[in-house]
Amino acid sequence: MNDTYKHSEVTESDTTLNAILDLIVEGTWDWNGETGHVTRSPGWYRMLGYEVGIFLENVFTWENIIHPDDYKRVMTHFEQYINGQSTQYLIEYRCKKSDGSYLWIIDRAKIQAYKADGTVARMIGAHHNIHNKKLAQDEVSKLNKLLQQGNMSLDNLIKINAKELEKKNQELEEKIKEVALLSNIDPLTSIANRRSFEKELQKEVLRSRRYNHPLSLTIFDIDLFKNVNDTYGHKKGDDILQKLCKLVSTNIRELDFFARWGGEEFVLIFPELTLKQALVVTEKLRTTISQYEIEPDLYITCSFGVTECKDEDSIEDIFQRIDNSLYQAKSNGRNRIESL
C-alpha cells in the first residue's frame, strides 16, 4: 500500500480523511469487529437517498437494507470471506433506498486486522453505484433471450417500450411484497406471526454467530387468560390481545422482533443482548404490563421464560429451554420471570 498522505498529528489526518469521505460520491464503510461499530461515509447515505447519520452505526443497518432476494447470497459470500474460505470480498446486490426502491451496487472490502482468536477485528469496504449499468445489462439479456427463442423480430424488439416494462415490473413487485406481508402478519394483533418468527429466528441465530454477538429470547403468555375470556367474552379477549401487543411494541427497541406464537402466547427476539441484559428488559415489560389498566379496573399479568442462545444450540434446543422456563414461571406462581 502506498502512503499518499503523511501527517505529523492524528488530528491533521482525521481532518483530511473526513474531508475526503465527505466528497466521495459513493459509499465507504469501516466495520470494527471488536465493538460491532460501523462507520459509514456521508456519500453512502446520499447514494441511497437517506439523511446523513440517520441510521444506527451497526451491522444491522446494512443487513436490513439488502434486497430479500439477494440476502442469502450476500451473507454466504461475506461468511466465506471472513472465515478464510474465499480470498476476496467482491459482490453485486441491491440495497434499499429511502423511497423504497432498490439500487444495484457493487460491494468491495478487505480485512485490515484480526483478533487473537483469528476472527475479524477490522474490515473496510466501499459500495459503488452500478444501477444503470446493471439495468442495461439485464435489458440486453432479456432481448437476446427473446431473439434466441424466436418469439419476436428485431424490429418488434426495438419498438418495446422500456418504461412500460419497468412499470409492469414495479407493479408485480408491489403485489409480491403485499402477499409476502400478509403471509407474515398475524391478522388480529398486526404483529409478526409464528411463520415469520421462525424465519427471523433462524436469521438472527446465523447473524449472532457471524459477528460473535449475544442473542436472547423471551416467551410469555397471559396468566389465566381462559378466565378472562369466560368472564368478559372472546371479543373482549381479542381487544386485550390487541392492546397488549401495542403496549409491548412501544416498549421494545426497533431492532427487537415481536411475534404472536399462538393464542395468548408471544415471543421476543433480543439481538445483541446477553441473558443478564434480557432479564432486565423483560422485567421492565413484566412490570409495565402488570401496571397497565386495559380499561377501568381491568388488569392482566404475564409469565415469562428467558434464555440466551449458545453456539452449539439448535433451534429445538432454544425452544426447549424457553418453554421450560415459561413452565417454571407459571408453576412458581405466575406474573414472574424464570430463565435457563
Rank of each mutant, 00 (worst) to 15 (best):
M123H: 06
K96V: 01
Y232F: 13
K159Y: 00
I185S: 05
K236L: 07
L268M: 15
E293M: 06
E283F: 03
D3K: 12
I124F: 02
T35C: 11
R260C: 06
A329M: 08
N64Q: 10
H7P: 00
D14Q: 15
E200L: 05
R207M: 06
A259Q: 08
S290V: 00
P214W: 00
Y211L: 12
D99G: 13
K246G: 14
D99Y: 10
N83H: 12
T307A: 10
P42Q: 07
W62R: 05
N193R: 04
V280D: 05
Q80V: 01
H234D: 09
S290I: 00
A162H: 12
D186Q: 04
K276Q: 15
H127D: 14
G36V: 11
G125L: 02
A136D: 14
M47F: 09
E293N: 05
V38M: 03
R73Y: 06
T61P: 02
Y81Q: 05
D239G: 03
I315N: 12
T301W: 00
E178L: 13
S208P: 11
M75A: 09
Q137I: 01
N83F: 08
V280Q: 13
L154S: 14
N2M: 08
W261C: 05
D317L: 06
N132Q: 15
R194T: 05
I222F: 03
E173Q: 13
E254D: 13
L241K: 07
G125Q: 01
K276W: 00
G233R: 11
L215F: 04
G84Y: 03
R94Q: 12
N212W: 00
C309V: 15
I54Y: 07
K6E: 09
N32R: 04
M47Y: 10
E9L: 09
D70G: 08
N132C: 02
N151G: 03
L182E: 07
N144H: 11
R260N: 06
K203Y: 14
I300Q: 03
T189I: 06
I124N: 03
L244Q: 04
I111Q: 01
Q277D: 14
N144Y: 07
V120T: 11
V120M: 05
E272D: 13
F220V: 05
E265P: 09
F225G: 08
A19P: 08
L135Q: 15
I160H: 01
I322P: 07
R210T: 14
W29M: 05
H37G: 00
I191N: 01
Q148G: 02
D230P: 14
I105A: 03
